[in-house]
């Protein structure tokens, strides 16, 4: 639980660091991109901290080239 709080603190820190500048410069498109990515990152990180099993990105690679078998069989 504390680790999730730490993640949220990190996200809040990132927000506090970046958002005022973006708002001041009226870069709302950039702000929205930032918030979207921050949301994804926070959610993923919290899920990780809660030790839920997340899909392995390398499985994507494996799936993409599953027809290769093993490269040893050249």
């Amino acid at each position: 639980m504390t680790s999730v709080l730490a993640v949220l603190a990190l996200a809040a820190g990132a927000f506090w660091l970046e958002a005022p500048g973006l708002i001041r410069r009226q870069q709302f498109r950039e702000l929205s991109a930032f918030l979207v990515l921050l949301l994804i990152g926070t959610v993923l990180y919290s899920l990780l901290m809660l030790q839920l099993s997340l899909p392995n990105p390398f499985m994507l690679v494996k799936w993409m080239f599953r027809w290769m078998g093993t490269a040893k069989s050249f």
Binding site: G21, L31, A33, F34, G41
Partner: peptide, 15 residues
């Protein structure tokens, strides 16, 4: 088409 890229660094780092 963003004008700045610095703010993306921390969220991308988390991901």
């Amino acid at each position: 088409r963003l004008k700045e890229s610095k703010m993306l660094t921390i969220p991308l780092g988390m991901i």
